[in-house]
Nucleic acid binder design. Sequence first.
DNA 1: CGGTGAGTTGAATGTATTCAATGGTAGTGG
DNA 2: CCACTACCATTGAATACATTCAACTCACCG
Lengths: 239, 239
Amino acid sequence: MMTSHYRPPCQACTSCDTRRMAVCSALQDDEVAELERAMSFVRLESNTSLVEEGEPRRRVYTLTSGLLRLSLALPDGRRQITGFLMPGDYLGLADDEIYAQTAEAVVPSGLCSFSVRDMDRLMERYPRLRDRLHLMTRAALRQARETQMILGRLAPSEKVASFLLHMSNRAAAYGRPESPVPLPMTRTDIADYLGLTIETVSRTFTKLKTQGLIRLPDPHSVEIVDKSRLAVVAGLTVH
Amino acid sequence: MMTSHYRPPCQACTSCDTRRMAVCSALQDDEVAELERAMSFVRLESNTSLVEEGEPRRRVYTLTSGLLRLSLALPDGRRQITGFLMPGDYLGLADDEIYAQTAEAVVPSGLCSFSVRDMDRLMERYPRLRDRLHLMTRAALRQARETQMILGRLAPSEKVASFLLHMSNRAAAYGRPESPVPLPMTRTDIADYLGLTIETVSRTFTKLKTQGLIRLPDPHSVEIVDKSRLAVVAGLTVH
DNA sequence: CGGTGAGTTGAATGTATTCAATGGTAGTGG
DNA sequence: CCACTACCATTGAATACATTCAACTCACCG
């Protein structure tokens, strides 16, 4: 696990630009100072894992920059990516005593880190923090079920189209442009997220490009040309 | 919505046999009495819906008997069942202001019902109740992610095998025999849960039967003949 | 300049789906 | 009591389509 621990590179939580997205938005400036005292900062290189499925859960995290993938593995090596974590997202929502999934950095990432003990104490002291965490857990559960639908009932083109729209919406939620959408993860990651093979993902991108719905300046950025037609392909609107 | 409301047919919460499975296990006998005062009982006929995706969430429930299916629907009618609720399970874990999915009875079912207002008040008063609910939400999230793996990365035989083992384990958790496993839901329900067609589900059952792994006394009960080989088929053990 | 990893594309293969027919069971009404 | 209907489950045959196997390109790095 190639991580290095040091004090945050950001000035302070009060001036942190991911705060409005994260669990700490539940706290006021003076309260967040206490959170800050319990916090340490972690930097993570690409393709290194922060937590491993089955490990005891001793720390929880808030992602401040970069991108993480959460995944489950089968004994024979098959992998399912259950989701991607973006800045402001919390790592450790689903876990109890042990981590239920592996978290790895897709690109160099930074995280605020807290011991479970400290976080429990803080939640005890600031109920709004606890409530916010519960709220985020419920949202994650709704998201997971939405993904079940995508995995179980959508055709490959629909999967890829809805994935692109989803990523576009998330980018917009973080104040970034809706298009072009950056896709820092590999085709293999996308395949393991959508329940497809890498070849099918690649072919589907090409097909959407040929149909004039998207453009692919490079493999890791997608320009959405026709959002409404893409939504039709995604199966989200009645044709 | 064919429901009828009346006082519970059971003597009292203190003698309720699903209590140990449900959220109310967090409360002591004297505390559960207050829960009971806020409670009303609902009986639900087969194939009637209790809550509908998109409706405002005004009440929450604990299933005491029967079986419910939770589902999401696509505009064109395709359906994904995200899970089945068994006695002791809580309805409303993921939802916020509105219900995120539809809940329907698979067989005649009974539920304890609470207004969201009452439940919020009770959670405020009994933190262990709130903590238990949060615990159940996290468990549901882990379950949903496990299901993502099943939907995205397992072959049809593996899906059906792991579904049977899952149902068997749940039956055992409720103190019922591991085998034969009752499957009150239709093949269509199973297909919509596993991301398959009804024909593929049927053929897979037949195949597992032919291989001597299960027996099918009737379409709604499955006898598990060889649990370990079934686990191999499910992809859960290295061959 | 060779080497590696990621992505794309082509051809074949396998397999789940689709379309269709049949059997079984339960409920309804004559 | 017995047709008659409706629904569910199963099975067969043809089809469609994602996967598999393989080749090739490209960019990046040593």
